[in-house]
Design a binder for these strands. Structure first.
Length: 303
DNA sequence: GCGTCCAGGTCTACC
DNA sequence: GGTAGACCTGGACGC
């Protein structure tokens, strides 16, 4: 029997592949990518109670979302599923101004042509924060281990897969469990504090994607969460649609040295000065600059 | 197989 | 405000 499905219209210059391959999130559960068909499966979670697996694919000018529920149950969730998928793919975010800017610059004309620039994000800000903390001070392999463990051991099962754990599920763990079973090491108290404060209603983060306060204020608000430093806050800002910070890490720095300095190391201020002319889009131009080679590969995360 | 060293952001204590 | 050291893990490397 065919699964219930819905179509979600995509904006002009939207590229499904360039969005899912915009950075490493697609490799972290609950996302699961079929590299042959390029279909993306994830588990959407609503109110911590309802978990719905969905499979998303490119349908030209729209996304096709198959819902892994029976038809009579699925139709009750259409609006929630639409909103969640639109948020994950940034469908409501206009990139027109960015593309106009990119088209003015010969070295960035490829950006509009390829539909690059939309950065994939998680269903919730909470999930993005946890994943971002799990990328700090470790290899990508360890990030994958930590997030795999979080989802498999703490996420609610749904149709043979698991959702991302709720703040309450993480807050209910002991620090020892997070260290020994999730393998998140010294990050354990940061995750506990974050999840505990959100679960207790002492901290709200979901408004970060929509709040209109100045970027520097939001940056400081992000930095006030333990475990979020300049790198993590800079990249969380990008996932909130603000691109004034670079979110520098060792990989990005190395890429910049190779592209512009023949491999010679320079200070962060030099990198920031280089992108200063790009105004409020500087962090996005920087990211696209250092990941340019990804966009010519079928599957960019393999050497 | 075992031990040692290193890379990777953030926090805290100290100057 | 700037800096040094600690945090913890997986992987690379040497023996």
């Amino acid at each position: 029997m065919n699964k219930p499905a819905l179509h979600i219209a995509t904006p002009p210059e939207f590229s499904y592949l360039r969005t899912i391959y915009s950075h490493g999130w697609v490799l972290l559960p609950p996302f699961s990518l079929d590299k042959e068909t390029q279909k993306l499966t994830t588990v959407l979670s609503f109110g911590g109670e309802k978990q719905i697996p969905v499979t998303i694919s490119d349908a030209k000018k729209s996304l096709l979302v198959k819902i892994h529920l029976s038809s009579d149950k699925a139709h009750r969730h259409y609006e929630n599923v639409k909103a969640a998928v639109a948020s994950i793919f940034r469908l409501d975010e206009s990139m027109q101004e960015f593309y106009r800017e990119a088209s003015r610059l010969p070295e960035f004309r490829w950006v509009k042509k390829m539909g690059a620039g939309r950065l994939l994000r998680s269903q919730t800000v909470f999930e993005d924060i946890v994943k971002m903390i799990c990328t700090t001070n470790c290899s990508w392999a360890l990030t994958q281990i930590m997030v795999d463990n979080l989802v498999k051991k703490l996420g609610k099962p749904a149709g043979g897969v698991h959702a991302f754990p709720s703040p309450g599920a993480i807050a209910a763990c002991s620090e020892k469990f997070l260290r020994s079973e999730i393998r998140c090491g010294y990050r354990a108290p940061y995750l506990l504090e974050l999840a505990g404060n959100i679960a207790a209603g002492k901290l709200t983060v979901e408004h970060w994607r929509t709040v209109s306060s100045p970027t520097e204020d939001l940056f400081e608000e992000m930095r006030s969460v333990k475990g979020i430093g300049p790198y993590a806050a800079g990249n969380l800002l990008k996932l909130a649609g603000r691109y004034e910070h670079h979110g520098l890490d060792s990989w990005c720095r190395q890429k910049f040295y190779e592209i512009y300095k023949k491999g010679r190391k320079v200070g962060d201020a030099v990198i920031e000065k280089h992108y200063q002319p790009f105004g409020k889009w500087r962090g996005l131009f920087f990211w696209l600059d250092v990941t340019k080679e990804w966009h010519s590969k079928k599957f960019p995360f393999e050497e």
